[in-house]
Design a protein around this nucleic acid. Structure first.
Lengths: 141, 141
DNA sequence: ATTAATGCAAATTGTTTGCACGGTC
DNA sequence: GACCGTGCAAACAATTTGCATTAAT
């Protein structure tokens, strides 16, 4: 059993939620994806597996995975939500290529610090943030 | 005729688009709103005016207003798009209060500069960005 | 046994679109 | 008169939800 599986079971147990084959299948599928994915892409991967999971269950389970900290939900703009495997990772932000759709991750301690000072100035207590830069990647300009 | 009206007419003219009472009404309504608004809030204001404008026209006109640079479309998260009067204003980002929904604007030259250097590192050509911080404002914590 | 979870399809939400009619250039 | 713009209602797309059934505890 992977660390992630353990963490998920723990999370479910602590909330009085059940460990079902569908939830396991969703987690396994998530672990098999690298990079960002949508709920529907995840569903498509599970559609013909056994056990499978319906779209509704995919959405519902994704929420629990986010709750457990195993998955991060990122808003990359557009109408659909994106998710990514977050186990053992740190917060990061994104450069999004308008040409090929590539998503480049970045982190900047300096930006985060400035962010904090902006919040301080406004007596604002930050809980999360989203910082995305749209443009064209090396290959696309 | 306000500067904004002039600018809008100019924009429409340059594109071979027509100046209609509905488009004027939408512009007038937009100018009468301060702060951020949704397409639907705008529609509601126009619903019982004369001339009025349908939801479809509100959406369609909003796109032209964004195109002309008079209005800025901002993604504040959630499912609906927000807009704001942008005439004579500079780019800015947002602190969004999860408690009362208040939206505080901020700008930081230093952050923008760091952003530029992040892009340079990745050979990424930025076209726009969106930086939002979610949390609780002074009144809400 | 109890009570949560699933699948399905219907419902929601915000926005877009097809089309017949009316108005602007 | 040509053609764009409008309103309406239907279409959409992503996500959520109600409900009867199935299964984990």
């Amino acid at each position: 059993m992977s660390d992630q599986e353990g963490r998920f079971r723990e999370y479910l147990g602590a909330k009085g939620l059940r460990i079902t084959p569908e939830r396991q299948a969703v987690l396994t599928a998530v672990l098999g994806i690298q990079g960002h994915f949508t709920a529907d892409q995840l569903y498509l991967r599970l559609e013909r597996k056994n056990p499978r999971a319906s779209r509704a269950t995919v959405y519902r389970t994704l929420e629990h995975l986010v709750g457990s900290g195993l998955v991060d939900k990122v808003d990359l703009g557009g109408q659909q939500a994106f998710y990514e495997n977050f186990y053992g990772r740190e917060h990061h932000d994104h450069l999004i290529c308008l040409g090929c759709g590539e998503i480049i991750e970045f982190t900047s301690r300096a930006i985060e610090e400035l962010q904090d000072s902006v919040c301080r100035e406004h007596q604002f207590e930050a809980r999360s943030h989203s910082h995305k830069i749209l443009g064209h990647c090396r290959k696309c300009h």
